[in-house]
Design a protein around this nucleic acid. Sequence first.
DNA 1: AAATGACCGTTATGGTTTTTTAGTCATTTT
DNA 2: AAAATGACTAAAAAACCATAACGGTCATTT
Lengths: 189, 189
Amino acid sequence: MDRRHEILEAATKSFSLFGYKATTMDQVAKLANVGKGTIYTFFSNKEELFHAIVFAMINEMKAEKDAIISDRRSFQENAHLVLMKMLEFRERHALLSKLIAEEKEMQTPIVQAVLVKVEQEIVHYIAEHIERAISNKEIRDVDVELVAYLIFKAYMAFAVDWQMTHEQALPEEKIVGVFRDTIFRSLIT
Amino acid sequence: MDRRHEILEAATKSFSLFGYKATTMDQVAKLANVGKGTIYTFFSNKEELFHAIVFAMINEMKAEKDAIISDRRSFQENAHLVLMKMLEFRERHALLSKLIAEEKEMQTPIVQAVLVKVEQEIVHYIAEHIERAISNKEIRDVDVELVAYLIFKAYMAFAVDWQMTHEQALPEEKIVGVFRDTIFRSLIT
DNA sequence: AAATGACCGTTATGGTTTTTTAGTCATTTT
DNA sequence: AAAATGACTAAAAAACCATAACGGTCATTT
């Protein structure tokens, strides 16, 4: 039985369920069926454990994105498919929305820092793809950083913020539809 | 000397400077040079006074918007001019950003409720104008509510959120530019 | 009739004690 | 010998509580 893996599983479960602050190392140890000291042989502290989990998630998302994107499809189609896939994560991973909620309630600086890094990471990936599409003359020449930021913020707005002020979450088709009709549409040459 | 007006001035100053919670009625009374009881002859409680001020601000913004919008200009041009005007408010009125900050720090329920109403109000105005432009065949037929929400969220993202994760605020021309190149561009028939 | 500020019940504050937590390390287990 | 452990400690957070500050009222004053 891989102890490192057990710890990661337990910690992921706990962070997702209770957030960063409310997750204790004793709890993680018990959930993982290891002594507390064992955790510290793999991760030097709570923050590093947390970091490892969040970036495992980002890498999982990135891998799924890379598996989808194909040179044989248009930017428009690729964007559409990746957007659909990312919307699946919305339900599958409770972690991010839990962290966003925690960051709003209490100001946990470690959580804040991680969320900023996650944002930078994702915006960076989006920007890379836009850049490439511009080089390929697939889309118009636009301010890459700003458009990437817009796409990220629009995604978060529809996928996460919407249900704060509306009764129910937006169905995925609607989100995909508005992206297709507005931001993506504006980019075609 | 109009007492009601003095009270509104004093309260606006205090709410903008200190936020909702840190503004005391005694303080407002002293600043307005009236007895505390006098405030209660005009406003039934602190929340109502607060409400009056925030919605005076919204109405001021609405008035500026109405003064700008003209049937003789295209939707595109009107949108551009209104966007420019709204960006001026960003610096002029410290109140809204103070409230947003307060809402993030402590969870003041009254502030939260007002911010939700402000969002609804503004999104509603945007939606009305989109609706009209669609009727006039000026822009394409799109999901009005979602596009209005997108415009509002994009505005907040560039005008307010951007400087949270970046060194400095975005210059207004850049914000106007990205709107022109993406969302507005996608709407033209 | 309008304005006021002392007053009241309630809520927030901040100093203090108690509990919980992250991280360590001497001991035990493999 | 190497890995795992959990009792232990210093530090941080929670619970507590006395006291101050607050929103709102109303008998009195202007």
